[in-house]
Write a protein that binds this DNA or RNA. Structure first.
Lengths: 155, 155
DNA sequence: CCTAAACAGGATAAAATTATCCTGTTTAGT
DNA sequence: ACTAAACAGGATAATTTTATCCTGTTTAGG
């Protein structure tokens, strides 16, 4: 598992908020949790971290909710989201858990894993919110599972 | 974190046992735990899983211990080790935790992550024990941290 | 055949992660 | 002002992962 569950929920939450923000809508906790099919109190905790990490903005009170300034959406990457939630996410760590794994004292898979880590970080840095949120709007990608009872729009 | 702590300990344990097996030596739990700097009772549990998964062989009784048949060492890969310990290790899972993420219904990072997963599996399949154990013997890679009090062999 | 060294495995404990609860504060609308 | 909707944050609970404990079985060697 690359990301913790908290990160997974966080990424999905931010993507939903970004998509809604593109349409000028704020999202409430209830809407986010329902959309991403995650427990609302846990999502609340994660959103707090994202607010503190300046990934999303929260507005209290009636008609409040979470949003991202549309001009900011293109600046945010997966890296920003993940680090806001999981301070310990550090792809620099050794795959085998060695504290002193390094170029001069490599673990047996150091060199292979190094290439993979580079790919992961590159993927995370390149994954910017605007592209993902727009794909969600286009319907070329998805955030949630198919509904259990398919809705027949033709009836 | 790509692997769980149990997998990390497991990989290091197997590598040590493989190296010792190349020299015709069995390894006891005490030796393994000490070498890889991990808690002995936890390593014991992990070794049990590796025995059940046919990655290593155990011999009970005095002068017993763990070993790998030298002819087998070249057949074992990281994949074998990891799956023996972590039944849930499944790189097919979605990076964002979606149950229904697929080619026809991809999550926003499905395609990028797919390439990374392929690399990870490829790395794991290519990492075979014999090469790693021999590198350990050669001293071109390492399993443990540097000793805290450097031993001065010249005195 | 007795002993000590070594693995096996069930039960339990500790720590980390995930999830929930409750009370407080903010704020739009009346 | 009052109310209801919404986020904030501390405290607690449940679950999973990590770690330990204890008793049993095996076996080489005296």
């Amino acid at each position: 598992m690359l990301f913790t569950k908290a990160c997974e929920y966080g990424i999905r939450s931010v993507l939903f908020v970004a998509k809604q923000s593109l349409e000028g809508k704020r999202s409430t906790l209830k809407e986010i949790a329902s959309e991403i099919e995650a427990p609302q109190p846990f999502v609340a905790k994660i959103m707090q971290q994202l607010v503190r990490g300046n990934v999303v903005v929260s507005v209290k009170g009636i008609s409040g909710g979470f949003y991202i300034e549309p001009s900011q959406i293109k600046e945010i990457t997966l890296t920003n989201i993940v680090f806001a939630i999981d301070k310990n996410f550090d792809s620099k760590l050794c795959a085998m858990g060695l504290k002193e794994c390094s170029e001069v004292r490599p673990c047996p898979i150091h060199h292979t894993y190094k290439a993979i880590k580079k790919d992961i970080i590159s993927m995370m840095d390149k994954s910017n919110l605007i592209e993902m949120a727009e794909s969600l709007k286009n319907g070329t990608c998805f955030l949630s599972n198919l509904p259990k009872q398919p809705i027949n729009n033709l009836q």
